[in-house]
Simulated assay, not measured.
Amino acid sequence: MPLVPTAELIDRARAAHRAVAAFNVITLEHAEAIAAGAERAGAPAILQISENAVKFHGGDLAGIAAATAAVARACTVPLGLHLDHVVSPDLLRSAHTEGFSSVMFDASKLPYGDNVKATAEAVRWGRERGIWVEAELGKVGGKDGEPPLDAHTPGVRTDPAEAAAYIADTGVDALAVAVGSTHAMTERTASLDHALIAALRDAVGVPLVLHGSSGVPDDELRAAITAGMTKINIGTALNTAFTSAVRAYLDAHPTTVDPRKYLVPAREAMTGTVAHFLTVVSP
Results as ranks from 00 to 15, higher is better:
residue 134 E to M: 15
residue 9 L to Y: 05
residue 225 I to M: 10
residue 30 H to I: 03
residue 34 I to Y: 02
residue 137 L to P: 05
residue 104 M to L: 14
residue 155 G to C: 01
residue 46 I to C: 02
residue 119 T to Q: 03
residue 62 A to Q: 10
residue 66 A to M: 11
residue 245 A to S: 03
residue 50 S to P: 01
residue 246 V to Y: 01
residue 103 V to Q: 07
residue 254 P to A: 05
residue 59 G to D: 06
residue 206 V to R: 07
residue 262 Y to S: 15
residue 220 E to A: 06
residue 107 A to K: 09
residue 170 T to I: 13
residue 174 A to V: 15
residue 274 V to P: 02
residue 176 A to N: 12
residue 46 I to Y: 03
residue 52 N to A: 14
residue 268 E to H: 12
residue 181 S to N: 08
residue 29 E to G: 08
residue 265 P to N: 06
residue 243 T to V: 14
residue 1 M to N: 09
residue 152 H to I: 12
residue 114 D to Y: 15
residue 12 R to F: 12
residue 247 R to C: 00
residue 56 F to Y: 11
residue 179 V to Q: 10
residue 92 L to G: 12
residue 250 L to G: 01
residue 175 L to N: 09
residue 224 A to C: 07
residue 120 A to C: 05
residue 210 L to C: 10
residue 171 G to P: 02
residue 211 H to L: 12
residue 25 V to L: 04
residue 84 D to Y: 04
residue 274 V to Y: 13
residue 98 E to L: 00
residue 36 A to T: 06
residue 100 F to E: 04
residue 35 A to R: 10
residue 278 L to R: 04
residue 232 I to V: 12
residue 100 F to M: 02
residue 126 G to H: 05
residue 54 V to Q: 04
residue 265 P to Y: 05
residue 166 Y to Q: 06
residue 39 E to H: 08
residue 178 A to V: 08
residue 266 A to S: 11
residue 63 G to A: 13
residue 211 H to W: 09
residue 4 V to I: 01
residue 152 H to S: 15
residue 219 D to L: 03
residue 257 V to S: 09
residue 133 V to L: 14
residue 63 G to R: 13
residue 129 R to M: 05
residue 21 A to R: 03
residue 117 K to H: 11
residue 95 A to H: 09
residue 30 H to F: 03
residue 71 V to W: 04
residue 91 L to R: 09
residue 67 A to S: 01
residue 198 A to E: 12
residue 63 G to D: 12
residue 60 D to W: 02
residue 93 R to A: 15
residue 233 N to F: 06
residue 110 L to P: 06
residue 176 A to P: 10
residue 85 H to G: 11
residue 140 V to F: 15
residue 234 I to Q: 03
